[in-house]
Design a binder for these strands. Structure first.
Lengths: 137, 137
DNA sequence: GTCCGTGCAAAGGATTTGCATAATC
DNA sequence: GATTATGCAAATCCTTTGCACGGAC
């Protein structure tokens, strides 16, 4: 089934691509950096280079399989594109990421862009804060 | 007067710091990258290193004089902190940046964070799109 | 004069790319 | 077997840092 996704995306079915797709699908944390993916691969005994991880993730992004986010600090985070857009709430202490969608905010963004004469290609709303768990400490 | 700002920030008054502050205040485009500032300095005949530009901008950021934004592509943009928060509309073709504030969006963000148990430390909303001018081409 | 700031070059982290080899179709 | 992918190392981009010198107070 994973092979099907890859073929549909016009990508040859190779071991690195399947493994990486698998990781994205099964990881507890859905928001992974290229390094994260690389480490998970290493621990599984796979001998896949970091450059390949980046290449594959970029291809997946182009194919619309994953979304890439640029968080503060110049780090990129990848996650599977499940089709429904959402924004992020990022904990600056533990790095935990939560998704959210707010209909009102979405609508207002369209409104703002239209008023300014822009055609939206993308938008990113990240709220940085301290999550409940970290506040207890 | 610029010296006053610097002194208040606990920074010695030096030529690079004054020049850079001046550029931030006078530039037509209020959103400048470190490279931008560096180039403007070079063109003015000032012999100030790029490393110093970064150092000074970082100090200004710590002193609360400027705000640093991380836009897509891992580039940082600096702008004077005039005290009123705002979000950004970025043209992906020409790089033009516009500011906007939407009371409704601000309120909803607070709401979302509170519901999730987060204490907001910061947030960034960037809408990427194609500006009116670029659409004509 | 002391201490902080600067310039330069070198280091750093994240990501990309060139090239020969290895895998898919 | 032709074409595309991979691995490795080197290259790149943006940013930071180490160190000796020069300037501010």
């Amino acid at each position: 089934m994973k092979d099907t996704h890859l073929k549909q995306a016009g990508l040859k079915v190779t071991l690195p691509r399947m493994k990486i797709l698998q990781i994205l699908e099964n990881a507890k944390e859905h928001h992974l950096s290229a390094e994260d993916v690389y480490h998970i691969l290493s621990k599984s005994g796979e001998d896949i280079g970091l450059a390949t991880v980046y290449r594959v993730l970029t291809q997946f992004e182009e194919a619309g399989l994953v979304i890439r986010h640029n968080f503060e600090g110049g780090h990129s985070i990848f996650e599977l594109d499940h089709g429904h857009h959402h924004d992020h709430l990022v904990c600056v202490k533990c790095g935990h990421v939560e998704e959210f969608v707010d209909r009102v905010i979405e609508e207002r963004q369209e409104h703002v862009a239209r008023n300014a004469g822009y055609t939206i290609t993308d938008h990113s709303l990240n709220i940085y804060g301290i999550c409940g768990d970290c506040q207890k400490e």
